[in-house]
Design a protein around this nucleic acid. Structure first.
Lengths: 223, 223
DNA sequence: TGGGGTCTGTCAGCGTTTTGTCATTTTCAA
DNA sequence: TTGAAAATGACAAAACGCTGACAGACCCCA
């Protein structure tokens, strides 16, 4: 899961990043408002954490622009202590939750989890593609009712592809979402991972689009 | 819909009452803990809003007594700013949600609505998973009718997992709810605890999802 | 007051699983 | 046909979770 963190205070940014990564998220940390807006507009995030006082472009403006353009990932707003005005404005602008500074890391993570859950909760926690069934609550994949034992990384791969079924997912996007620390070097980690998953599955679920990426598709739908 | 409001601060009590009435609720406002307990015990409410710092009888005690006597209306707890401990204790005592002071009236009403809506489904104080039966009123776990002797911490662990059965619960979430001085970067306290509980149980109740957390599941729910 | 028991967190060690890399082979689209 | 992309098998390091031992805190009871 990829999170966008927008915070201009270097220290806080670092601390939060560390905490989020410890909680299993992939974090894009950004200090500048305009940069943040661009990222939120072009990348795909599970959620964003947004500080309101920013250089470049004010946090509220960033949020409003995202919403105006239909970006609906949940946003957790960080407000200064006692800044009631900011809270109200933030909620009006489309924030899903707010957290006054200073805050405890645990609380931040808990709230983040909550808004992600809520946002994902609108959709069914189960994704079905052909004979494969992904239960995101149990974090389990079954084929024809038989559970398949997957490693964390393998599960993340399948989950990501199934949650984006019908779309070709480039390798790079995959590796970005698989909280690995490799910096786009020549690595065939994704390919290896796909191979491992395929070996465990009794059916052909993941299709290769040579030169483009991988896709999980409803059977019968042609390319 | 009738709401019980328990709050000793005259000013807040008045404001909240006004807001709730404006939102279409009938409000019983009470400042004293013992009186509040009596009301909650004898009257029928759709929900309660409970401040923790009270004269007469502490809010936590009030809540615990209600729960001990089977009163299962949803309770929204008001906590002082940053009172992390209170929050955890409140949830342990059976609160459905909490709201840190100060808060916006709109938010209070929204959260109240949410817990009332949620309460429409679940009310049973007993959770059964396979051969295991958790009685949250007696704070007791039985397997095949035989009670299992658990330490407080062990009970909390099992209770939390059983109350969230069918869902993978991350280790961090667990340690957050086990009111300890968690967030130790390296601590295997949860693992140790799980091990201790498992040794006491005659059946395999808690499953490990390596890399993700733990889950308690209905046996045979493979999908 | 002291002693035993319980509870709880820490630590180190252990075995297993997981995962990235590399070398090599296979496959596919131009 | 051919070269790049993808798949595969092997390997070693790292990560992860389980366990037993231990120590401090706490409580109960003589």
């Amino acid at each position: 899961m990829r999170i966008l963190l927008v915070e201009d205070d270097q220290r806080i940014r670092q601390d939060v990043t560390t905490a989020l990564e410890a909680a299993g998220y992939v974090v894009d940390a950004e200090a500048n408002g305009e940069e943040a807006w661009f990222l939120g507009d072009t990348e795909t995030y599970a959620a964003a954490i947004l500080d309101l006082g920013l250089p470049g472009m004010d946090g509220l403006t960033v949020l409003k622009r995202w919403r105006a353009e239909g970006r609906d990932f949940p946003v957790l707003v960080l407000t200064a202590r006692g800044a009631w005005t900011e809270r109200v404005e933030g909620i009006d602008a489309g924030a899903d939750d707010y957290l006054p500074k200073p805050f405890r890391m645990e609380e931040l993570v808990a709230r983040l989890r909550a808004i992600i859950r809520r946002s994902g909760g609108q959709a069914s926690p189960v994704v079905i593609v052909g004979e494969a069934e992904l239960d995101t609550r149990q974090m389990r994949l079954s084929v024809n009712g038989v559970p398949v034992s997957l490693s964390p990384q393998e599960y993340r791969l399948v989950a990501y592809l199934m949650l984006h079924k019908g779309r070709v997912v480039p390798q790079q996007e995959l590796s970005e979402h698989l909280q690995s620390v490799h910096f786009e070097r020549e690595s065939n980690a994704v390919e290896v991972l796909v191979g491992r998953v395929r070996r465990k599955l009794p059916v052909a679920l993941i299709e290769t689009r040579r030169g483009f990426g991988y896709i999980v598709n409803e059977p019968g739908s042609s390319s």
